[in-house]
Nucleic acid binder design. Sequence first.
DNA 1: TGGATGACCTACA
DNA 2: CTGTAGGCCATCC
Length: 116
Amino acid sequence: MKQDFFDRVYKIVAKIPKGKVTTYGAIAEVCGIRSAARTVGWALNGASSTGLPCHRVVNRRGALTGRVHFGDPFLMEELLRSEGIEFDKDGNVIMKNHLWIPKKNSKNKKSNKKKK
DNA sequence: TGGATGACCTACA
DNA sequence: CTGTAGGCCATCC
């Protein structure tokens, strides 16, 4: 069933520890679809209804791209700040201090990513 | 069945 | 370094 992909994303998002944030690319890679980062965001589109901490999911730059999908753009920021997450002057999350990479429960893979 | 959309990422100019 | 273009996967119409 294709929804298994959604389940993977939900599981990972639900595993995000408090005070930490992850990126779409990280989730996509853990799901096994690094190139389908867009699909991850698409899955989160329904995650806002599932009650998952989608507010802890940000893009590669740490920008809250999907905050508008929460219903309140400021809600996401408040939630993250309530968890101890800090924002820079650009309004992006300090991923270098709060970035959390989910663990894969399957086989390992090469982990090589360049930072900007 | 095919085209279009989506909360992205990477590469090239 | 900034900006633009392409791609990739999954779902919806």
